[in-house]
Design a binder for these strands. Structure first.
Lengths: 190, 190
DNA sequence: CGTCTCCTTGATTGAAATCAACTTAGGTGG
DNA sequence: CCACCTAAGTTGATTTCAATCAAGGAGACG
């Protein structure tokens, strides 16, 4: 299945009939407050799965952060299978626990880290998942980064500038970053 | 096992040899940044389980938020059992997913809600788990609430005062709250 | 009765949000 | 092919909310 950038894949409280694997592009899952405030919970890149739920409803909204292609899986008998296939369900347990870990790390970032520190964490985690070359291509907008880090686009932009000023990164384009001092980012991030 | 208030039950990166069930009192799980900044991930009250991990190490620190009694379980063959007992592992999956949900809700709060809104959420969730009587007894300090909500004790205190001023709550003592306008709290919390 | 801890309140500072203007890059069509 | 248009990003000025600094009050306990 293909989705254009910013298309909704499913919405909060939609019935969870399928889950997905990313073939290409980036997907974001997010939540909203009634007045429109938004927080991106996670980005999913090539090869990652999302949309697995326990109840009948999706707890988050999923949107295409870039144009992307997905593999869709019928949820079907997953529930019943769960009670019989111990390997499957223990793998799902591991999967859920690793998501939990990521979410807890995210909470620590949102609750206790300042703007530059948040961006440092983001760039490090992003560089880890992208190919390990020096220059990384950000596949999402400043707005997406801001909504993930609990900031505004202006603050994100200023933080990029600041990281560049202290020579931790180099901006070769608005979406292109080279990490020039990984150690500096690391010490900001903990 | 008994723990006095503020005693560590286990620390981040400790070997995860046991997990626990709360018999009485309240436990908090938390993470730290190197400079001492702290975020409480969750509180666990009577009957709740904590300390279940996938790897060999605890990912969080657990401390007694009040004097408390715990039931300790050897982790033992849980790993091997996991691959054979489908019911157990699917239950663990559900457990992990509900923790994940809670963590995501927490992240939304930390990333996008202001101080009073955060306190409103906290009081509502706390009143849900405590007995449903009108007056609730907070079993933790302002510092704990602040570390959970990503605020300082002063801001928490001011938010209590503010909620009282708008007649959403009544403080019958520093640790005793009566919710007088649940609707007001609800509309702050979403 | 004094001391200590926890909590509240006030004054000031500071980091990020908001408001506003400007720049750049990319895409489109003349 | 180039000029224009638009969306995305940056930068600056100001405001705002929460943090910090500081002082004082209330209850618990020896």
């Amino acid at each position: 299945v293909s989705f254009d950038q910013d298309r909704a894949i499913y919405s909060e409280d939609d019935e969870a009939v399928s889950f997905f694997k990313v073939i290409s592009g980036v997907v974001r899952t997010c939540r909203f407050l009634r007045d429109g405030r938004k927080l991106i919970d996670a980005f999913y890149a090539e090869g990652e799965m999302f949309g697995i739920e326990v109840g009948n409803l999706h707890k988050l909204t999923a949107e295409a952060a870039s144009d992307c292609k997905l593999m869709s899986f019928r949820r079907g008998g997953l529930d019943t299978e769960l009670h019989h296939d111990a390997t499957l369900s223990s793998e799902l347990f591991s999967y859920a626990m690793s998501c939990l870990n990521r979410a807890q790390e995210h909470a620590l970032l949102l609750g206790r880290k300042c703007a530059v520190e948040r961006l440092a964490v983001f760039l490090l985690s992003y560089s880890r998942r992208a190919n390990p070359s020096v220059t990384i291509e950000l596949e999402m907008t400043r707005q997406d980064i801001a909504d993930f880090l609990g900031l505004t686009i202006e603050t994100v932009s200023r933080s990029f500038t600041l990281l560049q000023k202290i020579k931790a990164i180099e901006l070769t384009g608005p979406r292109c970053v080279r990490i020039t001092d990984r150690q500096a980012l690391l010490s900001l991030s903990r």
